[in-house]
Amino acid sequence: MSPDLTTTWLGLKLAHPIMPGASPMVDDLDTVRRLEDAGAPCIVMHSLFEEQILREQLAAHLHLDAHSESYAEALSYFPDSNAFALGPDAYLEQIRRIRKATHIPVIASLNGVTPGGWVEYAGLMAQAGASAVELNFYALASDPDEDAGGVERRALEVVQAVRAAVNIPLAVKISPFWTSLPNFARALSRAGADGLVLFNRFYQPDFDLENLESSRRLQLSDSRELLLRLHWTGILTARLATPVACSGGVHEALDAAKAIAAGAHAVQVVSSLLLHGPSALAKLRDGLAAWMEEREYASVAELRGCMNLARCPDPAAYERGNYIRLLQSWHGG
C-alpha cells in the first residue's frame, strides 16, 4: 500500500508535504498551472516587499510628478499618471488570479518595514484570498544602538499586530541568525505564529574587485544548505509544538524525507523547480512516496520527527558533542 503523504500546514490539509516555496514562479499563471498539474498542494507567493513599494511610490512621486507644473509647454510628461497604481495592487491581483485559475490554496508572503505596513498588507492579502500569510523577517540588524532584545521585540510586536488584525493562519519565516533561536521561536509562537519556516536565504552581495563594486548574483541553493535546516528543525520541533516547514536545500526526495524526519510538517522547494521545471515537484513527491514505501513508513506523520532532538538515537549529535566528534574523527581520519 502506498504511504499516506497527507500533512497539515497552517491549518491547510495538504495531499503531501512538498510545496513550491516563495519564488518568482508565481508571476506566471501558466507556470502556476503547471505546478498544480505537478501536484503542488499549495503555492507560496514571493514576498511583497513593503520597502520596495514605498521606494517606488516615492520615486514615482519624485521622478514622474516632480517635472510637472514647471514648464509652460509641458505641464506633465506622462499620460494620466494617476491611471496606474503604485502599491500592492498587482501583487494582490495575482493572488486573486491564481485563486481563480487553480484549485490550490495560496500562501502570501510579506516583508514589511513599518508596523502599519505589515498589518495593512497582511490584511489586504487575506482579503485578496490568501489562505495564509508568511511573514518574511528579512532584515539585517545593522544599528549598533539596538540590542538583540530590541530586534526581537520589534519582530514580536509585528506578529502580535498582524495576528490581531487578520484571521488567516500566520507563518513566520526567519533566518538562523537569532541568538537563542528556540527562545525566539517560542515567543513567536506565543505572539501568534501558527508555523515557522526555516530559513530564509539572505541575499549576500559579492564583490567585484575589478570595478570596486558590489555585485548582485542570485545563487540557487544546493543540498548542502539542508544541514542547517535539519539541525534546527530537529531542535525546535523537539522542544516546541509549533509546526515547522523546512525551506532551502531540498533537491532530492531523500532531502525531503530527511526534513520530515527532522520534524518538518512541510517542505518548501524552489531551486530544484527553477532548475528542472514544475514537473520536478511530482518527481520529488513520488520519490518520497517510493522511499517511504520501501522503508515501510505508512505515513508522513509516522516519519515526522523520528530524527529530531527528542527521538534521534544520538542527541549529542545535535549539540556541541557533535562538533567535537567531527573534529576528532577528522584528526583520526
Binding site: 513599494i53 514605498l54 511610490q57 516615492l58 514615482a60 512621486h61 494617476n82 503604485l86 502599491g87 495593512e120
Partner: peptide
C-alpha cells in the same frame, strides 16, 4: 492627487 502614488506618499 497622490492617492494612486500610494499611502506612504499621502501620509508624508
Amino acid at each position: 492627487a497622490y492617492g494612486k502614488r500610494g499611502q506612504e506618499v499621502v501620509r508624508r
